[in-house]
């Protein structure tokens, strides 16, 4: 009797797991198929190599190089800055923070920041910019994205540093290394694959976010030229093109989404490669 119940239970659980898997894979395939089918016909070399010409948004010639380079500048700059700040926060939490309570307050703060919707960061950044008299610009966008990426990266690094065995840090202290030397020479190397993953997560969130750069970075048809000028970004390019009544331009929106997805795919693969490379020294 009991035996039969276990069999039924197992079958049911297996079914549920397979169903979840199907939802995950199914939505991925569905999204990819949509942007491929709708975007591929509109994708051409000009999209990747040109900026919008006059009448681009009515279906005339041009491309979205402005948004590609703008997004790279925004997300690249913000990710580089967040990486350094997040590393400092994580190292502080694990090697210098002597009070457990203070550490848990910091972690809670980071978790709350993680959950704040990006439009709030955008609005906050915009308010601050108004206050100090900064226009919508690359710099403003980078600052907003740093706020967005920092908690993700810091908490991810924090979690991987949690897994560093205390014996490993002790081995470094035992030859007379300071806490700082131990942190940078041992902990960073031991957690390198995790740090690279944190980098990817931050970059992925930054390059794909529209709301935080809407007011802070603005939009322009030009290439990024200065920290103090507005820049375009891919998510906003998708948004603007999708909102036109011209069918050709809407197809270009899907092509832009395809480009964005492709960039994220490339970054993911690079990360995997470097992560694996970073694995070889890790002590288990």
């Amino acid at each position: 009797m009991r035996h039969r119940w276990i069999r039924i239970e197992e079958t049911l659980m297996l079914f549920l797991m397979r169903a979840s898997l199907l939802v995950v894979l199914g939505s991925l395939v569905f999204i990819l198929a949509t942007i491929l089918i709708k975007g591929l016909p509109a994708l051409n070399l000009a999209m990747l190599t040109q900026i919008p010409r006059g009448g681009y948004y009515l279906g005339k010639e041009g491309g979205i190089l402005n948004a590609i380079t703008g997004s790279l500048a925004l997300a690249g700059g913000a990710t580089a800055i967040s990486f350094c700040l997040a590393l400092a926060v994580a190292i502080y939490l694990h090697n210098f923070c002597s009070s457990e309570r203070w550490a848990s307050v910091l972690r809670l703060a980071l978790d709350v920041l993680w959950g704040i919707p990006s439009i709030v960061y955008g609005a906050f950044g915009f308010t601050v910019m108004l206050f100090i008299g900064l226009r919508a610009s690359l710099l403003g966008g980078i600052v907003a994205l740093v706020l967005l990426e920092l908690p993700i990266m810091a908490r991810t690094m924090d979690e991987v540093m949690n897994l560093v065995p205390s014996g490993l840090k002790e081995a470094s202290h035992a030859v007379g290394a300071t806490r700082l030397e131990t942190a940078f020479k041992v902990v960073v190397r031991q957690t390198l694959p995790g740090l690279i993953t944190a980098l990817l997560l931050g970059f992925g969130r930054g390059i794909g976010d529209a709301a935080s750069v809407l007011f802070t970075a603005g939009y322009t048809d030009r290439l990024p030229s200065s920290l103090f000028r507005p820049v375009a970004s891919l998510p906003l390019a998708v948004f603007f093109q999708l909102g036109t009544p011209v069918a050709d331009v809407r197809a270009r929106a899907y092509a832009s989404a395809l480009i964005l997805t492709g960039m994220i795919l490339v970054i993911s693969l690079l990360t995997r490669y470097f992560s694996r490379w970073g694995m070889r020294n890790v002590i288990r």
Binding site: L168, E170, S172, A174, V175, G176, V186, L192, V282, I283
Partner: peptide
């Protein structure tokens, strides 16, 4: 710690 070295029970080579 430099002048008085310690070798631990479980070996922990450094990640390098």
């Amino acid at each position: 710690r430099k002048r008085i070295g310690l070798l631990a029970q479980r070996p922990y080579p450094l990640p390098m």
